[in-house]
Design a protein around this nucleic acid. Structure first.
Lengths: 202, 202
DNA sequence: CGGAATCTTGAAAGTGTTCAAATCAAGTGG
DNA sequence: CCACTTGATTTGAACACTTTCAAGATTCCG
């Protein structure tokens, strides 16, 4: 919980009062998720948006041919959930699955709306979050439509240095929109060109 | 201006008061832009975020090889601008150019913050906007990493039926992340397969 | 009527995918 | 501790899709 308060204070100009923090906490429900457990499956309505206290999750879609595409990776201090389904209460097209044992704080859209109205600092925080999320998604989109797989992988490594060791290559490949085989070839190619990166990659 | 008020009222639960609408209008500066004129060039700070009253604009980046990539198309009742640059006041990597003579309402980030604090309805509206923008960008990202060019084009046509006649094929191709030649071939292929679409495409 | 931009079409090259097999790694139960 | 199973990664060859470069055809405007 202390980590949660630090996260909140880091996102706004003046620290939240104890009273506001209590209000915020009251809106959330703690939840633990075992590795490989699901928070959401396609077809279900995403009742909760989740803040990740510990662990890691992925949100992904599955196409007709059974191929999976990772839309987002959520680790400590990130949010996961299908915004669209959560807001409109429509069935989701996504799965949200724990990649590691995870500790979450859940909030419904209704409780979120309530918080936004009653705690101005929370509204500030969420606005900043939406902003950063918008910017990050747009950058990823730009990379997807304008860069080669190798460029996207190099950029990904620069942006998320810790993900390389934490997540499997097939996961990263899916996040980048390529096949695991392709990522494997890219890595061998990069290693051949820049052997000094060996320890970072292995 | 009447169109602007309709846009606002459509996005919130209860219509804005005259006083609030006056406050909102006071925060904006009208601006006309001739076709091919720029609202923003790469390297500049995006001082204003813009609401489009009439006309059309595109935001695009230019890579080392001179290739352009359209990040967004803005038409009536859409917003255009580089969020990141506007908020952080950092130099932008994008160009924003009028595709048709355009009529805009400009607002600085500071004025936007002011409005968000003083007019709660405006904060609601912007929250909804950020939401929809997030959802739309994520869908486009998903399409970019999981669909073929042809699938993306078909989905694009379904989502933006009016854009087909309004914008050139090279513009649409750039938006989809493919070359104009590729889009031309895709269209020929689709027409051969489904001749009944002829009048829609031409 | 030009002239310029846009769209179309072709052939060759490049990039990433598909399918298949081999190798490697990790965890389980005996 | 070893044998076994399971999943992840690597590698290969053929294939598919998209790009590149180039040349024509078409359309749009002044």
């Amino acid at each position: 919980m202390h980590a949660f308060r630090s996260y909140i204070d880091a996102g706004i100009s003046t620290p939240v009062s104890d009273a506001d923090f209590a209000r915020i906490c009251a809106a959330f429900t703690p939840k633990k998720l075992r590795k490989k457990a699901f928070l959401l499956r396609a077809g279900e309505v995403c009742k909760h948006f989740a803040f990740v206290l510990a662990g890691a999750l992925r949100m992904y879609s599955v196409n007709e041919k059974g191929g999976e595409h990772v839309l987002s990776l959520g680790v400590e201090n990130w949010w996961v959930g299908d915004r669209e389904s959560c807001v409109l209460l429509t069935p989701s097209r996504y799965y949200v699955e724990a990649l590691e044992d995870a500790s979450l704080l859940l909030i419904t859209h209704a409780q979120m709306q309530e918080l936004l109205c009653t705690v101005p600092a929370w509204a500030d925080l969420m606005r900043g979050l939406d902003h950063r999320h918008n910017i990050a998604t747009q950058k990823r989109l730009e990379a997807a439509i304008s860069s080669t797989a190798e460029e996207r992988y190099v950029a990904f490594r620069a942006q998320h240095p810790t993900f390389e060791r934490r997540f499997s290559q097939q996961l990263i490949a899916s996040y980048l929109g390529i096949l695991p085989e392709t990522l494997s070839r890219i890595r061998t190619r990069l290693l051949a060109a820049k052997p000094q990166l060996a320890e970072v990659l292995s």
